[in-house]
Design a protein around this nucleic acid. Structure first.
Length: 488
RNA sequence: GGUCGGAUGGCCGAGUGGCUAGGCAGUGGUCUGCAAAACCAUCUACACCGGUUCGAAUCCGGUUCCGACCUCCA
C-alpha cells in the first residue's frame, strides 16, 4: 500500500492516512439538502470525494462510502418559529413535502450521473432514520448533555464543554462564540445562545413532522449525519468529508453529538473541500450569480457564453486542488474545454503509437511523479500537469522526435487509463452525432469533397467546407483524410 | 467586531528558500491548394514595505486589498 497523505482539519496538517481496519476504509460525506435545483456547489464535494472514493479503491481498500440525502429540511433560521426549507417549498407548491424532496433527489442523481460521479455504497435518507435520531437524542439526554423544554430538545453546549472541547474542529472558543452570537429571540427556550436543537417541536402549521417522546416535531439539523454515520459506519470511522462551510457549526456539532452519545468523536480524518466562486464572488441566490448544473450543461444562464459539457466541469474542478477556492468564468471553462480535448487527443495518439527499441524519456519517473502527487493530499492539478507532459512526449514520439519502447508505451497506456479514466473519471466529449443516417450522409459529402480536391477543384471543395460551416459543422483535414465535428 | 484563509504572468491555476509546474490566450513555426484543426517552439509572474539569508516569489514582521465562517448554504 502506498503512503497516502491527506489534510486533516482536526490537526490542520497533512497526515499519513492509516485506516482503522487495515483492509477497509469507512467514509461519510455530507450530501445535498434536496429542496432545490442541484447547482455548482453540489458538484465540488461530490467530485472531490468521488475522486477519493475511487482512489482508495485503487489503492486496494474495500471502501464503504456513505453520502446522505437530507430530505427532512433544515431550519431556516435560529429563531424559534423555524419553518424548514422542504416544508416551505411544499407549502408554496401545494404538494407533499416528500414530493419536493423526491423531485430534487432525482434531479441531483441525474446531474451526478452526467458528471460521472460514482454512486456511493449507501445513500441514506434522513427521513428514513428518524428512529435512529430519536434514539441518539435519548442517549445524549441520558448522558446529561441535552435538556427538554416545551417539546424541543437542545444540546447543552456549555455543559458539554466542561468535559469536552467544543471547538476542537473549528478552533473556536466557546467564550468568543457566546460573546458574538446574537440572541435574536428573547423568548428562546435555550439555556445558552450557543446551544443547538436536537429536536424541534412542530407548530400546528408545520407540515413535516414525526411523533417522538417529546411530542410531534422534527430532528435538528446536525443530528441526521451523526445518526446515520454511526448506524452504517460505527462509532469510529475513517473519513468524514464535506464543504468547508460545514466545519462550523455542522461538523463541530456532529463531533459534540457523537462524543455526547458514544464518547467517541466519530471520524479520524475530517476533510473539507473549498468553495466555488463566480467572478471572484461566492455563488449565492441573493447575489444573482447562482447557476444550476443544468444551466451549465445547456448554456441557458445569462452569464454563460455557451453550454459546458459535464466533463468540462469535472475537468475544470480537477485542475484546482480541492482545498483551494476555484473561480468559474467563461474564459476559464473554455480553456478547460480545450485542455480536456488536448488530453484525449493525446490518449488517441498514444493508442496508435509505434514503438522503438528504447525510450528517449524516463517514463517510470513520470509515473512515480503522478503517484507522488496523488498521494500528496490528492493533488490532481499536479497529476494533470505530468499527464500533459506525457502528452507532449506522445506527440513528439508520433512525429519521431522522441522514441518509446513498447513496454513504456504499455506503462503510459496504463497510467492514462488509471488516472484519466478510472480515478479522475473523465470521459471523452462525444460531440459527434450518433445519428447513423447523418454520419453516412457526412461520409458521402466528405468523399465528394475529397474527390474535388484531388481534381484541384478548389471552388467545389471550399463551397462544401464553407457551406457546412454555416450549418455549424466543421471539417478537419488531416494527413489521414478528413473528419468532421459540430462547432459550438 | 471575532476566528481563519488568500493575494502568482492577459485568464485559470500548482509549487517551492537557489533548478521550466500545467492548461488557455498571444506570438513564431510545421502541415495545408488556401484556411481551419492538429502538432512544435516561445514571451509576459510571484500585492506593497521592511527584516533574516550567500541567496526569498517561497521564512519573519508590518501595510493594503480580497474571501470564508460566526446566520440557511456545498
Amino acid at each position: 500500500m502506498q503512503d497516502l497523505k491527506i489534510h486533516n482539519t482536526l490537526s490542520g496538517n497533512k497526515e499519513l492516512f492509516t485506516s482503522i481496519n487495515h483492509e477497509s476504509v469507512t467514509m461519510y460525506v455530507c450530501g445535498p439538502t434536496v429542496y432545490g435545483e442541484p447547482h455548482l456547489g453540489h458538484a465540488r464535494p461530490a467530485i472531490t470525494f468521488d475522486i477519493l472514493f475511487r482512489y482508495l479503491k485503487h489503492l486496494g481498500y474495500k471502501v464503504r462510502y456513505v453520502r446522505n440525502i437530507t430530505d427532512v429540511g433544515h431550519l431556516l433560521n435560529d429563531a424559534d418559529e423555524g419553518a424548514d426549507k422542504i416544508g416551505e417549498k411544499a407549502k408554496a407548491l401545494q404538494i407533499e413535502p416528500m414530493e419536493v424532496a423526491h423531485f430534487y433527489t432525482k434531479k441531483y442523481h441525474e446531474s451526478m450521473y452526467k458528471l460521472n460521479v460514482d454512486t456511493p455504497s449507501i445513500e441514506p435518507l434522513a427521513s428514513g432514520h428518524i428512529i435512529e435520531q430519536i434514539e441518539m437524542i435519548k442517549k445524549i439526554i441520558e448522558n446529561g448533555f441535552a435538556y427538554e423544554v416545551n417539546g424541543s430538545v437542545y444540546f447543552d453546549v456549555v455543559k458539554y464543554n466542561q468535559t469536552n472541547n467544543y471547538g476542537i474542529l473549528s478552533r473556536r472558543k466557546i467564550e468568543d462564540l457566546m460573546d458574538n452570537s446574537r440572541d435574536l429571540d428573547g423568548q428562546s427556550d435555550k439555556k445558552n445562545s450557543v446551544d443547538f436543537a436536537l429536536w424541534k417541536k412542530a407548530s400546528t402549521e408545520h407540515i413535516m413532522r414525526w411523533p417522538s417522546p417529546w411530542g410531534d416535531g422534527f430532528p435538528g439539523w446536525h443530528l441526521e449525519c451523526s445518526a446515520m454515520s454511526c448506524k452504517y459506519l460505527g462509532d469510529e470511522f475513517d473519513i468524514h468529508g464535506g464543504g468547508m462551510d460545514l466545519v462550523f457549526p455542522h461538523h463541530e456539532a456532529e463531533i459534540a453529538q457523537c462524543c455526547a452519545a458514544n464518547k467517541k468523536p466519530a471520524a479520524k480524518y475530517w476533510m473539507h473541500n473549498n468553495m466555488i466562486t463566480i467572478g471572484g464572488q461566492k455563488m449565492g441566490k441573493s447575489l444573482g450569480n447562482f447557476i444550476t448544473l443544468d444551466e451549465f450543461f445547456n448554456g441557458t444562464h445569462e452569464k454563460l457564453d455557451q453550454a459546458y459539457h459535464p466533463m468540462v466541469i469535472r475537468f475544470f474542478i480537477l485542475q484546482a486542488h480541492y482545498r483551494s477556492t476555484i473561480d468559474f468564468s467563461n474564459d476559464a471553462l473554455q480553456a478547460a474545454e480545450k485542455g480536456l480535448l488536448r488530453l484525449f487527443n493525446g490518449i488517441k495518439a498514444l493508442n496508435n503509437l509505434k514503438s522503438s527499441g528504447t525510450s528517449s524519456v524516463d517514463i517510470s519517473l513520470l509515473k512515480s511523479k503522478c503517484d507522488n502527487a496523488m498521494n500528496d493530499d490528492l493533488n490532481t492539478p499536479i497529476v494533470l500537469s505530468h499527464l500533459f507532459d506525457a502528452v507532449k512526449v506522445i506527440n513528439a514520439t508520433h512525429e519521431s522526435k522522441q522514441s518509446l519502447s513498447s513496454s513504456d508505451i504499455e506503462i503510459l497506456k496504463k497510467l492514462f487509463n488509471k488516472y484519466v479514466i478510472s480515478i479522475f473519471g473523465l470521459q471523452p466529449i462525444e460531440k459527434q452525432s450518433t445519428d447513423s443516417e447523418l454520419n453516412n450522409v457526412m461520409k458521402l459529402i466528405l468523399e465528394i469533397r475529397s474527390n474535388a480536391k484531388e481534381r484541384k477543384n478548389w471552388e467545389m471543395a471550399d463551397k462544401i467546407r464553407d457551406g457546412l460551416n454555416k450549418l455549424n459543422i466543421e471539417i478537419k483535414d488531416t494527413k489521414d483524410g478528413s473528419n468532421w465535428d459540430y462547432t459550438k
